[in-house]
Design a protein around this nucleic acid. Structure first.
Lengths: 107, 107
DNA sequence: CAGGAATATTCCTGTCAAGGAATATTGTTA
DNA sequence: TAACAATATTCCTTGACAGGAATATTCCTG
């Protein structure tokens, strides 16, 4: 059963952008805030939500806290999607069948 | 750019369950409500959100309205995930490399 | 057209999330 | 330890959203 907390966390545009930025590697709070034109407190608050959703982890480095993307929730999404992929693949298959049928009628 | 409306719609547990139920085929409002032990108005309201998010479509059939899952938003999620899949595949690759290394050291 | 079944909408209320501003905390360095 | 940089937290206000109850709408059938 898919955890809705992942969806809640990603439903907020700023947090989705955070995830996309962190795809390229860990980053400090300040850098994230600057990159997204956020005030630092808002950045911290959003990162907290991502942290509680398990979408990021944090590592203290000197004065800074580097946030790194965690892939587990995304893997879970991927697994959840698995059951739905065949729904649109079926359509392709049907289209495929249809095209084959047309082709054989052409002969 | 991934549409956050999809995530918002799926962030609500009842709506997620609706999507999962509709995976097996279209269903009327009443049947959905019964299946999820919801009152009819709540079912209609949640279906409206799913409709506006493009996650379902509706077809009138006599007195009933049958809701059917639309896969486009899910396909978009799948596409969005594509950029992240390599993140956990890389790990597997690294583990794979590591295991190969161990094995060759064993020789 | 009346009546009834299925569905949608409205109104109300309580809860929760988000931004702004201020402040607290933690860690570093002189 | 004092001062400073980086980050976290709190308080406040506002707006969105969910459930409950009542009602409106739509469509079919006699």
């Amino acid at each position: 059963m898919m955890d809705t907390m992942t969806f809640s966390a990603l439903a907020e545009p700023t947090r989705l952008r955070m995830v996309e930025i962190l795809k390229d590697g860990p980053m400090s709070v300040g850098d994230i805030a600057e990159r997204l034109a956020l005030r630092q407190p808002q950045a911290s608050k959003h990162l907290r939500v991502l942290l509680e959703a398990g979408l990021v982890e944090v590592e203290a480095a000197a004065n800074r806290r580097n946030y790194r993307l965690r892939t587990e929730p995304l893997e879970a999404m991927d697994t959840w999607l698995e059951a739905y992929r065949k729904l649109w693949n079926e359509r392709f298959d049907n289209l495929d069948d249809y095209l084959r049928q047309l082709q054989s009628e052409d002969k």
